[in-house]
């Protein structure tokens, strides 16, 4: 246990230990809503007997925070959270203990301690790299088509799409949030090629979802992609996005055959 500095009121509180993690949300857990995520983490941390910190007050909440919400049903290998403990959790470099307690499909990839003065987690996640993949049909036609449209989209100043919602349609401009978009053909060993779209969308500013991007590109003649994955979040580089915690760069262009936009 670290030193317990007396507070202004003279009450001694244990020092808190913050940890940031990057984790996956795959398989069945991609259907866990943002609303339910807190309870899933709380119970997993308790099962792993990790010293999670709670807020004060009548209804203490575990100190687990998520910088943003992933749409229900979307998979991710680039989710981030900040966990606060009352004692060092000893997870850095060995996040397996937490992974084991989390539901199948949720795995902690990276865990790092947070020194004092580090900027807020959300500030380290200015953008996300998304991947949209179509089933292995029409790749020879679909990739060049999307590639042409992606270039046109990047060249345009505005790109308005309609988002359909139960409470009424909303028109929004996807262009300001779009930093890069590339259509590629992914060669799958012993299987048919697939069309894959990778895009970098800003996290700050008005929310533009990958589904909005599809609306901007599909124009009624391309089926919605069956899988959407948030690959990673972090700093935007010309070649891709650098993971905010691990530092690895996830490239925008995934295949030698890809046409850079």
């Amino acid at each position: 246990m670290a030193e317990c500095p007396p507070t202004a009121t003279g009450v001694t509180r244990p020092a808190l230990h913050r940890l940031r993690i990057r984790y996956t949300k795959l398989g069945r857990t991609r259907f866990v809503s943002a609303r339910d995520l807190g309870a899933v983490f709380e119970r997993s941390l308790r099962r792993a007997a990790l010293p999670i910190a709670y807020s004060e007050g009548f209804t203490p909440h575990p100190k687990v925070s998520f910088p943003d919400a992933l749409p229900v049903g979307t998979a991710s290998t680039g989710e981030y959270a900040e966990l606060t403990f009352t004692a060092p959790p000893d997870l850095e470099g060995d996040p397996a203990r937490l992974s084991a307690a989390l539901p199948e499909g949720m795995d902690v990839l990276i865990a790092v301690g947070v020194p004092e003065g580090t900027p807020k987690l959300a500030r380290l996640l200015p953008a996300a790299l998304w991947e949209l993949a179509w089933p292995p049909v029409d790749a020879a036609e679909l990739t060049p088509l999307l590639s042409r449209r992606a270039k046109a989209l990047l060249a345009a100043d505005r790109a308005e799409v309609t988002r359909h919602r139960p409470d009424g349609d909303r028109i929004l401009d996807v262009r300001p949030a779009l930093l890069a978009v590339v259509a590629s053909t992914r060669r799958v060993p012993d299987a048919d090629d697939r069309t894959v779209l990778r895009a970098v969308l800003r996290n700050d500013g008005p929310t533009v979802r990958p589904s909005d991007l599809v609306s901007a590109l599909a124009r009624g003649d391309v089926a919605p992609p069956p899988t959407i994955v948030r690959v990673v979040q972090g700093e935007v580089l010309p070649t891709g996005v650098r993971d905010a915690l691990g530092g690895e760069v996830e490239p925008l262009v995934i295949d030698v055959d890809a046409e850079a936009a």
Partner: peptide
């Protein structure tokens, strides 16, 4: 899995509980 996006509260159909 491919149909769950169109229904309310899909997590209730996925199983995978501790």
């Amino acid at each position: 899995e491919g149909l769950l996006a169109s229904v309310q509260r899909p997590a209730r159909y996925v199983g995978g509980e501790h």
